[in-house]
């Protein structure tokens, strides 16, 4: 059993479990699944600066900050107690492609050649880690939700705006992957 848990979980196990987070949060406290709002609450809690968008009672949304703290701890639990020593299995085409950019390390979930502290000082690393992160924060709030709030929760509730948002997440992803990322990787 433990051995099975330590292997990467297949989509047909993980996907339905993620889907069950939707009724779980609704049933235990009338909460809708969403992660990116936590970023807004963190702004409201730390640096509201009299900006109307951040002047609200963030303590009412404390559950969301507790929830994301749990996600962080879950990452630790999975790594500490349920990890396996093998490298991540990556598609051969992708590995070949990445090799052209000097990215060969696939021991961990993140490519070690791209995501490390010294990389922050390179243009490539700075772009991917810092500018990428900025776009995630800016884009999710502009869109009013992220993959969890729109794609999982919103679609579960048959919300057309969430479908539009999800289509745009995917479109943005395809555009970045095929037309922009190759330039960033060769920086």
């Amino acid at each position: 059993m433990l051995e099975w848990l330590q292997k990467p979980w297949p989509w047909y196990v993980a996907g339905p479990l993620i889907g069950l987070m939707v009724p779980l949060l609704l049933l235990v406290g009338n909460k809708t699944l969403g992660v990116s709002s936590s970023l807004r609450h963190l702004c409201a809690a730390s640096l509201p600066s009299k900006i109307p968008y951040f002047t609200y009672d963030w303590k009412k949304e404390a559950w969301n900050l507790i929830f994301v703290t749990g996600i962080l701890l879950g990452g630790w639990v999975a790594t500490r107690f349920l990890s396996h020593p093998d490298p991540i299995v990556v598609n051969d085409h992708l590995l070949n492609k990445l090799q052209q950019y000097g990215v060969t390390d696939h021991d961990n979930l993140l490519p070690g050649d791209l995501f490390n502290w010294p990389a922050l000082l390179s243009l490539r690393g700075f772009t991917m880690i810092v500018i990428g992160g900025f776009l995630v924060g800016f884009g999710t709030r502009y869109a009013g939700g992220c993959t969890s709030g729109h794609s999982i929760m919103g679609l579960s509730n048959l919300q057309v705006p969430s479908l539009i948002a999800t289509a745009c997440f995917m479109a943005g992803g395809f555009i970045m992957t095929h037309f922009i990322l190759p330039f960033i990787l060769s920086l």
């Binding site: 630790w76 961990n108 991917m128 990428g132 992160g133 900025f134 948002a165 970045m176």
Partner: peptide
């Protein structure tokens, strides 16, 4: 916003949930 988030999602390889989880790993 959706398009911009899509860009950032591919660059960091993470949406907000995974960012928290990755720090934990």
């Amino acid at each position: 916003g959706g398009l911009l988030f899509g860009f950032g999602w591919v660059m960091t390889g993470a949406c907000p949930g995974p960012m928290y989880a990755l720090i934990g790993t």
